[in-house]
Amino acid sequence: MPLPVFELDPRLAADSVFIADGPLSQLRLMDDARFPWLLLVPRVPGALEWVDLDGAAQRLLLAELNMAASLLREQFAPVDKLNIGALGNLVPQLHLHVVGRRIGDAAWPGPVWGSGARRPYGGAAPELASRLARSLSGFPEAALPAP
């Protein structure tokens, strides 16, 4: 019997741009220029919740989350607050949002979800995703434990 294959939810694919594959997750840029916003999508078929991952995968996802938060702070400074969420109400596939918030941004102080029309990066999205991918090389391999 063939092993299940990871498939990215079509809504996540439509709303974000691929940056890089980490040891466990795809790192993606949310295509909304109003907010510095990254997504981590574990490449684990059928995972809907954090608790669907075994302990090793949970620790790896936490390391990737820390890396994504550091990347966001470094590349989108200044960031006043980090919002981290795994809601899954509209897209059940397990994914984590890492959103850089700035006092006075388009949704401040409320949540970014449902805060008005998304403003896509347009033609700038691929270059921004590429720049973010290149900056990942600055993170030590030791920061991401082996799977």
Score class of each variant (00 low, 15 high):
53 L>V: 10
112 V>L: 07
82 L>R: 05
88 G>Y: 00
51 V>H: 12
92 P>C: 02
73 R>S: 11
40 L>C: 13
98 V>S: 04
32 D>S: 08
70 S>K: 10
68 A>R: 02
109 P>Q: 05
28 R>V: 15
130 S>D: 15
143 A>N: 10
17 V>S: 03
96 L>K: 01
137 S>V: 13
120 P>I: 13
80 D>F: 06
94 L>G: 03
104 G>D: 12
145 P>D: 10
126 P>F: 01
65 L>I: 02
105 D>S: 05
50 W>T: 13
86 A>L: 06
96 L>A: 11
42 P>Q: 06
15 D>I: 05
15 D>K: 02
29 L>T: 08
109 P>M: 07
19 I>G: 00
13 A>Q: 15
69 A>L: 04
56 A>P: 12
85 G>V: 03
106 A>G: 03
85 G>H: 00
46 G>F: 06
102 R>L: 12
94 L>R: 01
96 L>W: 12
130 S>A: 15
50 W>E: 12
39 L>S: 03
57 A>K: 11
38 L>V: 06
63 A>C: 11
77 A>D: 15
147 P>L: 13
72 L>Q: 02
52 D>R: 03
34 R>D: 09
17 V>H: 08
37 W>Q: 04
93 Q>M: 08
72 L>Y: 01
49 E>R: 14
6 F>A: 11
95 H>A: 08
123 G>N: 13
76 F>D: 14
18 F>Q: 02
81 K>R: 15
68 A>L: 05
39 L>F: 10
5 V>Y: 01
29 L>F: 07
109 P>F: 04
108 W>G: 04
4 P>L: 07
27 L>V: 14
41 V>F: 04
25 S>M: 03
62 L>C: 09
53 L>P: 09
146 A>N: 11
19 I>P: 00
8 L>V: 15
132 L>T: 08
29 L>Y: 05
